[in-house]
């Protein structure tokens, strides 16, 4: 791979693993906890957020030189709101049932701190292509995070996955998983798992470092 593609790949992977918005930065918790009752809702919420993220980061990046510093947040919000409105109407046109299931959380993408944070921290300082690649990584990471919650909550809470029954008719649903506390429990468990994996990786790296020094 050429150096440029490697850097692009790094930019993309940053959002998926090293700075995953759900598991590492713990941002955007409102939709994360509220709409992950089923895997389908989680996936569509993740994709809509990712689309808004990519488009608005691209536009913010293009306008970064003409945006006055004093009003930049207002500019970002207007840009984001524009794309949220587009996504809002698009979902309404594609599937009204999904639109009803996601409810106010589509409009609330405007105030999702991942998007504003990316616009402020990355897109405003980088050219459009890297900004959009980074945004795509973040969006993918957010989608993966939502999906991880949605899959667990749907399997335990309803015995289905994407609406397909896994256990047959006699399944005992875990009512708590569909309720808000279930969202917190599942999110906590995933965070625990991520932290454990990360710690193990760190320890291995440290051990390797020591071995290298001794040699």
């Amino acid at each position: 791979m050429t150096p440029t593609t490697t850097r692009g790949w790094d930019e993309f992977m940053e959002g998926i693993w090293r700075q995953n918005p759900v598991f590492v930065m713990v941002l955007g918790m409102c939709p994360t906890l509220a709409v992950t009752v089923s895997a389908e809702n989680a996936l569509s919420m993740g994709i809509s957020t990712a689309l808004v993220l990519i488009a608005s980061c691209g536009l913010v990046s293009m306008m970064r030189d003409i945006t006055p510093k004093e009003v930049r947040i207002a500019v970002y919000i207007v840009i984001i709101a524009t794309f949220v409105t587009v996504v809002d109407y698009a979902i309404q046109a594609i599937s009204l049932a999904l639109y009803d299931a996601l409810g106010a959380f589509i409009q609330l993408i405007v105030v999702n701190c991942i998007i504003l944070g990316r616009a402020e921290a990355h897109a405003a300082k980088n050219p459009p292509l890297p900004a959009m690649i980074n945004a795509a990584g973040m969006g993918a990471g957010f989608t993966i995070g939502l999906l991880a919650l949605g899959v667990v909550r749907e399997i335990l809470g309803a015995g289905t996955l994407f609406g397909v029954s896994l256990f047959g008719a006699g399944f005992q649903p875990w009512v708590i998983m569909v309720l808000p506390p279930g969202g917190f429990f599942v999110l906590g468990s995933w965070l625990l798992l991520f932290a454990a994996v990360e710690r193990r990786k760190q320890r291995k790296l440290a051990e390797q470092g020591e071995v290298g020094q001794n040699v």
Partner: peptide
Amino acid sequence: AFVQAAFPTA
């Protein structure tokens, strides 16, 4: 409390 919330019928 957890199982009461998870399995209220049982």
